[in-house]
């Protein structure tokens, strides 16, 4: 609780100001600093975070693969259920999948794949495969961004041993900063914005090097992360 008058709190702020050799900020100084926050300017975006359509999608794919993801491109969203089924079959994975209860994702024609058994909701410990959407993806490092909420339980990203993400190529941006801008817009509330409880930036499957510095995938989260990339950018180049 933010307890004004909390003696511990007051002592810490007093100690900070004493060490810095100044009193609390003046109203004007506060305005300036609030301005720094309000403008939320990017500091420095590396060149590789810049580019256009196809170039960024190609870079995203290469970076994601370098982070041990597998990526398959499909021409249209209608092909997603088939691509998921193929992936599970080719890798001998369970065909029981837990779908994020996202209207776009669950609206795809899953019945077209009779071998798949689907359910929705947050992850249960026994779930082996999660299929989720993403909010955005970042070319810079091959990073997926997922937002928690009723349509995307966070546990789906971490509990099942396999994670399949259905991503539209048009969701790929160059740099992280573009995601923050989109996030502010998508969750706009009054003069500010409402952060979802969890924003997950995901770059490849779970891994550890804690045993003799050898990299092992699937430490606690997914052992494999597969991205079905929907090429919805035709004609945009």
């Amino acid at each position: 609780m933010a307890r004004r008058g909390d003696p511990g709190r007051e002592a810490i702020f007093a100690a900070i100001r004493q060490s810095l050799g100044r009193p609390a900020h003046s109203a004007e100084a506060r305005r300036e600093l609030d301005d720094h926050i309000g403008k939320h300017r990017a500091n420095l975006i590396p060149q590789r975070g810049k580019g256009d359509g196809k170039e960024l999608v190609d870079r995203f794919r290469a970076m994601a693969e370098a982070a041990a993801c597998t990526v398959r491109t499909v021409a249209a969203e209608a092909e997603v259920p088939g691509a998921v089924a193929d992936y599970l079959r080719e890798n001998n994975l369970s065909t029981r999948i837990t779908l994020a209860p996202d209207s776009w994702l669950s609206g795809l024609d899953w019945a077209s794949q009779p071998m798949l058994e689907t359910r929705g909701g947050p992850a249960r410990n026994e779930d082996e495969v999660a299929v989720t959407p993403a909010f955005a993806a970042v070319a810079e490092t091959g990073t997926l961004v997922a937002l928690s909420g009723p349509d995307h339980p966070t546990t789906l990203n971490f509990m099942p041993a396999s994670h399949v993400v259905a991503l539209r190529a048009s969701q790929v941006v160059g740099a992280y900063e573009e995601v923050w801008q989109q996030l502010r817009k998508a969750t706009k509330k009054g003069r500010g914005f409402a952060m979802p409880r969890a924003v997950n930036m995901i770059t490849g499957p779970s891994r550890t090097a804690d045993i003799a510095l050898t990299i092992q995938l699937g430490a606690h989260g997914p052992r494999d992360l597969h991205i079905v990339l929907i090429d919805d950018q035709a004609g945009q180049e």
């Binding site: 982070a67 997950n200 930036m201 995901i202």
Partner: peptide, 12 residues
């Protein structure tokens, strides 16, 4: 690494 596998921003 280019980026760690998981960066998570938690709010409330």
């Amino acid at each position: 690494q280019e980026f760690s596998a998981y960066t998570t921003i938690s709010t409330g």
